[in-house]
Design a protein around this nucleic acid. Structure first.
Lengths: 221, 221
DNA sequence: GAGAGGAGCATACTTAGGTTTAGGATCAGC
DNA sequence: GCTGATCCTAAACCTAAGTATGCTCCTCTC
């Protein structure tokens, strides 16, 4: 329930998911645009991967419909380029004449689905629904991690060191011995860490350390 | 480095990975048997899925090579049956005449690879190597979870309840108020929990609770 | 060269966590 | 009816954690 509207035709709201279509065939683009608009999805179409890359991508759940056979750059190579560029968007491939190795490569690289033309409208809609749902949850997780990283970034080097040791289960006195400072100083750092990370309890901090994949630094030798 | 032998031909050791081959064509079975043995892999071959199910599977890293077109039960259906039966083994499919929808279905269901006949020996070996590696790490994780569950099973109902509240970050007095007992009793439970779970610190216990996916029980209303 | 920020330490104090000892109450199973 | 397990509690005691005040020293920046 996103509220704000009961209409399935709500298009263009700031939080509405977007379907990007990249295909060199204008008739395919228009057919897909109509299909997605008919179910109330916001659509952006492009004639090439380059065009898609030049557009700015709003920060909302989205997915990409890609023809495997694009004129300049194949869909598979474009998928690889996106991954290298750090753009993670669920991809649904379409193909008129694909083969199994292509399919395997695409799926191994994380494609959501791989549809053969002609496909049923419902199959495409199902794939897009799954893709957007996948993007929604991965965006959620990314948001949580990034918020946590922002807090972690406010820690000083010493505080990070102490945080790793605290969340690995060491007592203050052990930490003090390990890094060669007084126990009282560890307590001060620890208090600062809790405040800066907005942790309400040690359990909280341990979970944050887990999410941040903070490792206890190996002691020298 | 598994040690014990420098020979790549070590076959049949108790910790050696196993490749299972299920194909109704005896010549395919023998060709694959020879291929895998030539690189020192232990192999078991079967003419049907039923035969494979009747054999006992040792607890070592393994993978399954499956023809998509089996006489009685298709490879895809067999894959689904294995999943339903709780048998999780990485599958490498082979096909002489598969299509893209089959490939997509197999990959979505977790297949490691999907090779078209005739395939190059090296492609099969690469797929098997990846599959066994996947099984090895998933077995490792499963082992850790199961050991943890065994410890958790020794806790009484009350201890589990307290563990959930402790690892959610509540103080002893808050836990006592929440479940209506004295703080001293919470401390006793807590001590028992630490001992039974073999946790060396609270941080340790929190990580265990995370791995066990223990949720704090919702307070009534 | 003044100020800010980080790191460190001491003293003093409060609260939280944890153990031991010693019980009482309930319930299942033999 | 006895035994063992579980749950609960109290008193006494000790250790760990956390906070506040006040100070030194160093380094980087304006």
């Amino acid at each position: 329930m996103t509220g704000r509207s009961n209409s399935p035709r709500t298009i263009g709201g700031p939080d509405e998911p977007i379907v990007y279509v990249v295909d060199d065939d204008v008739s395919v683009r228009e057919a897909l645009r109509n299909l997605f608009r008919s179910v109330g999805l916001r659509v952006e179409v492009f004639g090439s991967g380059a065009e898609f890359l030049q557009s700015k991508l709003p920060d909302v759940a989205s997915c990409l419909i890609l023809d495997i056979r694009l004129p300049r750059l194949s869909g598979l190579d474009f998928q690889a380029d996106l991954a290298k560029a750090g753009i993670h968007i669920p991809i649904v491939f379409m193909t008129g004449h694909g083969d199994i190795p292509m399919t395997v490569r695409a799926m191994k690289a994380g494609a959501v689905d791989f549809l053969t033309k002609p496909f049923r409208d419902q199959d495409m809609l199902d794939a897009v629904t799954a893709a957007i749902e996948r993007d929604r949850s991965s965006r959620n997780e990314a948001k949580i991690r990034s918020d946590l990283h922002a807090l972690f970034a406010t820690l000083t080097a010493r505080e990070r060191e102490v945080m790793a040791l605290v969340t690995s289960g060491l007592m203050n006195k052990q930490i003090a011995a390990e890094i060669g400072i007084a126990e009282i100083t560890v307590k001060i750092h620890r208090g600062n860490i809790m405040r800066k990370m907005a942790a309400k309890s040690l359990a909280d901090l341990v979970k944050m350390a887990q999410a941040l994949e903070i490792q206890r630094p190996a002691p020298p030798q």
